[in-house]
Design a protein around this nucleic acid. Structure first.
Lengths: 261, 261
DNA sequence: GCTAGAATGTGATTTTCGTCACATTTTTAG
DNA sequence: CTAAAAATGTGACGAAAATCACATTCTAGC
């Protein structure tokens, strides 16, 4: 099933460094995985690896490990030094930062095809954030030194990362402005819209394709759990969304958009 | 004085595109300028151009224009498309974004040696922010297409920009967290500390080496002019700073640091 | 399918901060 | 130098959101 030159880590919830874990192994095997080969990966078309030549893809394949993280796992911790670059095959990752009194702030939300660890690697820096799997997630891992020697002489490849960093910077700066200027209600509406754009709907074309707790929504928005809850119910009372446990259904996308200003 | 292969724009306050301006010309000539040559520029050591080989520096010199902006000038406008990359020889630039009801948010503050326009260029995007000169500022300008063809085959050069973007992203994400979680007083203290780290002191070793209005401070912090004023006076009453018109004197740096949490 | 623990909803209260209004000071242009 | 405009300081007030407390509901693990 998996290629011989791929080492497979099985990742155990909340353990660092990565360890073998029976549950992760079962997850790993239960998925109809692709060949664990970058060239054949269905994320190839959307990820930073698109447009890469076959030779570079082979090199990347040769150095990579594959790992599976169960929901809640830590991928890396704020303050530690990056050992390499991660690329998501499937799953969802939240990137969080610790603020006052250990209160978390979610600064990015990732999905299949996205990379993580690149900020610290290109910044030549420790991780400024932690990364957690929000659901069972499969990642590929490229050790830093080997990754660097592959990218080093490939201006196009580095340029692609610069492009990603530029897009992330744009989004972060926009978030500074909205956090500073908008009400909690507007920010909650904006975050739901972001989740919709980023993760899309489930098959019913109404339910947001991500399970997020009230606490996490509050951490995205930069408010308290209670205020996030109240904002959600305001949107519900305005017939813009429906709530069903952790499911959030968007029934009036335009209304949601209008609520962001 | 200036090299023949350097075109000099003289920049007129608030005019776009850049125009000849008598005042700017006088400013330009009154400064004992260097040769307008990247190789000899004193910012060479700190800017993205450090470690560049002589050949590349010569190429950059050949394509660049030099311009001087008087205080208050617009360097570029949010929403327009980048025509090239700027590098500051001296002066100070604020990068702002328009939020609700046209309220500004300052997202970055730049100084000699810093570049601007790189986010939009590497993001292949329009400007997501506007740039204003906070004081008389001298910039070098590198037209986009020519800049791209020089950087294209220079992985190290692009890598340097990725490094800058990574550092800016780190700072932006940290600012999201503080804006979301900290009180106005903490954020004002934090901004003063940032201004100190970024611009340093004047010769008296107490006065912040930047003139910033209450309004601008509020725009950095993400609050109102009145709240920013009140926070400044709280710090003054705590004998952490002194206020003298637009001058801000830091007399207790540790106290300022303690006030950020 | 039970049960403990986690997550959520909700009212009451307090705190922070924005808004408004206007006096005062500083800066700028002529 | 002077008038006008811009920037600043400050009190009163109200709105938004944090905090606290606790009831209720959901969920994971046995």
């Amino acid at each position: 099933m998996h290629r011989l030159n791929c080492i497979c880590y099985f990742y155990k919830t909340c353990c660092d460094p990565y360890q073998y874990c029976e549950k992760a192994k079962i997850m790993f095997e239960s998925h109809s995985c692709n060949s664990n080969c970058c060239k054949l990966c269905h994320q190839n078309k959307v990820s930073v690896f698109n447009e890469l030549d076959a030779v570079t893809l082979d090199k990347l394949d040769a150095i990579k490990s594959v790992m599976v993280c169960s929901k809640g796992s830590v991928v890396f911790n704020e303050g530690s030094f990056p050992k390499g670059l991660f690329c998501i095959e499937y799953g969802k990752i939240k990137i969080t930062q610790t603020g006052l009194d250990g209160k978390n702030q979610i600064v990015r939300m990732l999905k299949g095809g996205d990379v993580l660890g690149h900020r610290a690697i290109f910044g030549d820096d420790e991780y400024s954030c932690s990364a957690y799997a929000m659901e069972d997630t499969k990642l590929c891992f490229f050790p830093k030194n080997q990754f660097n020697s592959i990218s080093e002489n490939n201006g196009k490849f580095i340029h692609k990362f610069a492009q990603i960093l530029a897009a992330e910077l744009k989004e972060a700066e926009r978030k500074i402005t909205s956090t500073a200027q908008q009400s909690v209600l507007c920010r909650v509406a904006g975050s739901l819209l972001f989740l919709l754009e980023n993760y899309g709907f489930e098959k019913d074309l109404q339910t947001l394709n991500v399970r997020i707790s009230r606490e996490e929504l509050a951490e995205m928005v930069g408010t308290t759990r209670e205020s996030a809850t109240r904002a959600l119910y305001q949107l519900k009372n305005a017939s813009i969304i429906l709530l069903n446990g952790k499911k959030i259904l968007v029934i009036d996308k335009k209304g949601l958009f209008d609520a962001t200003v």
